Amino acid sequence: MKQQFKRFLTAILLATLMLTGCASETSTKSEPKTNEVAKEKKTENKNKEENKKTQTAQQKTPNKETPAPVTTTPTTSFSLASIPAYSGKPYVAVNDNKPFFPNNLSNKPFESYSNLDQLGRCGVATACITKALMPTTKRGSIATVKPSGWQTVRYEVVGKGSSGYLYNRCHLIGYQLTGENANVKNLITGTRYLNIEGMLPFENMVTDYIKETNQPVYYRVTPIFDGNNLVASGVLMEAKSLADNGASILFNVFCYNVQPGVNINYVNGTSSVANTSNASSKQQAQTTKQAKSTPQPKQNTPVTASYIGNKNTRKFHRGDCRMVARMSQSNKVTFNNRDSAVSQGYNPCKICNP
């Protein structure tokens, strides 16, 4: 019995030792797993904190590879307030007669016209004019176009042309330059005085230059409206000859949309005859000023002075006119005097005024 009892105790002890060993082994093996999970969680939390810091830094600092869009503002501007009141001259120089053009102008022929605004008014018209853009046929009818503020009426004070009608359908860029006919984006309500006395001399000057030199001219005309007026107060005309950087053609002028002897309501285009006495005095003053400003032939110029005509353009020039140097030799013809040139159908140059 004693031996059996000893064996029983021995068996119990062995079983106890085995169970203790297993528990110890299990505990030993599970500790690394617990530590590893804890380390992973710690690393994950650290990564999250770093990501948050990175995102915050990126929000504060713009990405250098995708810079924000840059907006540009015009470097030049025109203000109607800077233009003096009309005083008898059809136009006045602006910005020392230098156009508000940017640098590096394109010399390729093009023409561009602004869409009409909400009031039906024209906007800026721009072109690089070359011989290729000029018309080869006569202008067609433009009677179907009625620009903003079109309320034309006949007045005796308007004088000759258009049967005394106050308004013309004025091309911003003249037909002789680009051949635009009844283009509603290129026609404004303008007085005959604006059309003939103000704009036409500059249009003729550019036309003559291009025909005689076959060189491009950058050209822009902007109708200037005061507030919501339907009739423009005038037009800003700018031009520059590109081949010689403006040596031949360079101007920036504001042409007044007025008619001597007529009061114009620029809001809607209605009009009325001005006070007779005031109109007469203004017209007389205007005539005097124009006579003084018109170049007169020099008194000491000999009658036999030679003039150079251009067979292609049918214009004649003084011998020292810069247009003569640019003229093809085959197109030149010499006249002994001015009357001879006129009698043969040649018109005086608008640059040298022979």
Rank of each mutant, 00 (worst) to 15 (best):
V184Y: 00
R192D: 03
T213C: 07
N195R: 02
E197D: 14
I224N: 04
A182V: 00
V221N: 05
K211I: 14
E203A: 06
A239K: 05
R192H: 06
E197K: 14
E197P: 00
N186H: 03
R192Y: 05
S241D: 15
T207A: 12
P216Q: 02
Y209S: 12
T191N: 03
F254K: 03
N204Q: 14
Y219V: 09
V253T: 11
R220M: 09
T222C: 06
V231A: 04
N229T: 03
T207S: 13
S241N: 13
T222N: 13
Q259M: 14
D244K: 11
N204Y: 13
P201Q: 08
A182N: 15
L194K: 05
N252T: 06
N252Q: 10
T222M: 05
Y193N: 12
V253A: 05
L242F: 09
V221P: 06
N195W: 04
V217E: 04
N229H: 15
G190K: 04
I224L: 11
G190I: 00
A232Q: 11
Y193R: 14
M205V: 02
L187Y: 08
I249D: 10
E238M: 10
G246E: 13
F225N: 01
L194D: 03
E180C: 02
V206K: 05
E212S: 13
F254N: 05
K211D: 04
L200G: 00
P216L: 02
N214V: 06
S233N: 15
T207D: 12
T189K: 01
V235T: 15
E197H: 06
Y256L: 10
N183P: 09
L177T: 06
L194F: 08
F225R: 02
Y219Q: 08
I210G: 07
L200F: 07
A239I: 10
